[in-house]
């Protein structure tokens, strides 16, 4: 079976790739494009470690086909910082010690950024429910929730 040619935009970069028809977006990102920041924790959409945005919408990239990226705007963890300048969420995750091993961190950051874009002033409960699709086994979520809410506060004050 011949491969599919896909033209898309990833983190603002025009990107082309060839993929199999049954290849997930996550596999394309990791294995074809070298964007290994998105992680595969389950491959079934249950852990959120592969979270990306597609046209601004939060998606598990393991549940989407690479071919479906055609014409889309994809956002991954690699596009979150601007040059040397970290996104406020990235800074707050480090400051609050919101990561221990760090494997869930890219997915959580992408999901949290999406939360704050949809709801710049979330309550703790709203934050917990938005991030309920992102598993973290190290932290018990406490410091993650604090980091996200603190970043939201800083971003509101800065805007």
């Amino acid at each position: 079976m011949s491969k599919i040619h896909v033209t898309t935009t990833i983190n603002g970069d025009p990107t082309e790739f060839l993929c199999e028809a049954d290849e997930t977006l996550l596999d394309v990102l990791r294995d074809r494009l070298g964007l290994t920041g998105s992680k595969e924790g389950c491959g079934t959409g249950d852990c959120g470690a592969c979270s990306v945005t597609v046209g601004g919408r939060l998606v598990c990239s393991c549940l989407m086909l690479g071919a479906e990226a055609e014409g889309q705007e994809i956002g991954t963890i690699e596009g979150m910082a601007e040059g040397e300048s970290l996104h406020p969420l990235q800074k707050k995750f480090i400051e609050h010690a919101a990561l221990q091993c760090g494997i869930c961190t890219p997915g959580l950051l992408v999901a949290a950024k999406s939360l704050l874009e949809h709801n710049p002033d979330p309550t703790e409960e709203e934050t917990r429910y938005w991030l309920a699709g992102n598993l973290c086994r190290c932290t018990g979520y406490d410091k993650i929730i604090r980091a996200v809410m603190d970043a939201g506060k800083d971003m509101r004050e800065a805007s």
Binding site: R30, L35, T36, G37, S38, K39, E40, T76, I77, E78, M80, A81, L86, Q90, F93, I94, E95, A97, L99, G102, I103, T105, P106, L109
Partner: peptide
């Protein structure tokens, strides 16, 4: 004290290389 961890930036930017990376 609570200094920033040295591997923090790699881990919040997706650069850190785990087993499958």
């Amino acid at each position: 004290t609570r200094p920033l961890r040295p591997d923090g930036i790699d881990k919040v930017t997706g650069k850190a290389r785990f087993g499958a990376d």
